[in-house]
Design a protein around this nucleic acid. Structure first.
Ligand SMILES: [Zn+2]
Length: 373
DNA sequence: TGGATTTGACCGACC
DNA sequence: GGGTCGGTCAAATCC
């Protein structure tokens, strides 16, 4: 089993090192920052079996029927459209602000910044997304500048910013989604990893609002964040969905604790892992699974334009999940593990690599194409 | 009182 | 077969 793909694990972890400052606000509203709209589905989560404790989640991720544990890997026996080749394990990295969908649409993707995935390859992000794949390379650079801002810098707009990175993995198991799109996902597991600028999630909505309004605020904000955790996290986080924290762990490679959240929507299997730095800033977010429901309408968000609210996945092919988010910052910078490699411990890296190997990752290359360019 | 968070323990996967 | 690690559960606690 394990072989199937590796486990997701983490590889993502590698990135923990960054801290970004946030800058989201500039443009649109923060709300846009991350919206993840992924709705796709995976499977419903079934009631947890008592028997299988712990595992339930996994199970859920995997699929229903089966007993087979596969987490990520499931290959799709048959996938309608895309060949999922996509990789069983596909991790995408997306900037927090970006939505995968967009990425897909625009090839530019990360390029804006400069580095990024490898445009060179010609493949787009999608391609790139599989970092885990055999090569191990996965995203490439993203991190770059982020650090610069780390302290707070808010840059006016333009910046490449901080882009945290996001990775998204999709795992899918089954999907029930209506759209074709879902079909794609079906087997794919997706996890997104997002590096977030900060944790907006934690920030109370009001605060955020304020933020929007003012620009300067960030600074405050950031500093404020230093505070340990004055407030509990609110359910609704950056992406607009409601999350419930079900665990926290100190990961070995990083000093930052990782928190595990589940979507509170009844049957939604979506989970996310959030790593935050000591100062409270989110250094990494990894989404697992997709939401099978529209985003709750929150009071906050939507300022206007995009009300993203709910779009079922319609848009097209979004990749697997729609992550919509865009912050003012274009995102560009995504970090790659590699880059980060510097920071990342080798250990972690190794691990990830290893695992990845097991599963066959190889597939990656292909799939993306399907999606469209 | 109900829901969310915290946190230690358990379990499976990987090496 | 044993150790390590990540992920999840669930009781206690908090709000
Ligand atoms: Zn959900």
């Amino acid at each position: 089993m394990g072989s199937s793909t590796g486990s997701l694990d983490t590889s993502a972890n590698s990135y923990r090192a960054f801290s970004f400052a946030n800058q989201f606000m500039n443009t649109s509203s923060y709300s846009d920052l991350l919206n993840a709209d992924d709705d796709t589905i995976i499977e419903n989560q079934r009631p947890r079996n008592p028997l299988s404790r712990g595992f339930s989640d996994r199970v859920s991720d995997r699929l229903i029927g089966g007993g087979i544990p596969k987490f990520k890997s499931i290959q799709p026996p048959s996938i309608p459209i895309s060949p999922p080749a996509v990789s069983p394990s596909s991790y995408f990295s997306i900037p927090p602000g970006l939505s995968p969908a967009e990425l897909l649409d625009s090839p530019v993707l990360l390029s804006s910044s400069n580095m990024m995935l490898s445009p060179t390859t010609g493949t787009f992000p999608t391609h790139s997304f599989n970092w885990r794949g055999s090569s191990g390379n996965y995203q490439q650079g993203i991190k770059e500048e982020q650090r610069s801002y780390s302290d707070f810098s808010f840059q006016p707009h333009t910046r490449p910013a901080t882009a945290p990175q996001s990775i998204f993995q999709s795992s899918s198991s089954m999907i029930s989604t209506p759209s074709e799109f879902s079909a794609l996902k079906t087997n794919i597991k997706s996890e997104y990893n997002t590096a977030v600028q900060r944790d907006r999630s934690e920030i109370p909505a009001n605060v955020q609002s304020n933020i929007q309004s003012n620009s300067g605020f960030q600074s405050d904000f950031s500093q404020g964040q230093q505070a340990p955790q004055p407030f509990r996290e609110q359910r609704r986080s950056d992406d607009g969905y409601n999350w419930r924290k079900y665990g926290q762990k100190q990961v070995k490679g990083s000093e930052n604790p990782r928190s595990y959240y589940k979507c509170t929507f009844p049957n939604c299997p979506t989970k996310k892992k959030v790593e935050r730095s000591l100062d409270g800033q989110i250094t990494e977010i990894v989404y697992k699974g997709t939401h099978n429901h529209p985003k709750p309408q929150s009071t906050r968000r939507t300022s206007g334009s995009s009300s993203q609210a709910i779009q079922p996945s319609g848009s097209a092919e979004i990749s697997d999940h729609s992550y919509v988010g865009r912050s003012g910052a274009p995102m560009e910078t995504v970090t790659t593990p590699e880059n980060s490699s510097v920071s990342m411990g080798d250990d972690e890296f190794d691990r990830s690599s290893q695992r990845s190997k097991s599963g066959g990752d190889e597939i990656d290359d292909d799939e993306p194409d399907t999606k469209r360019w």
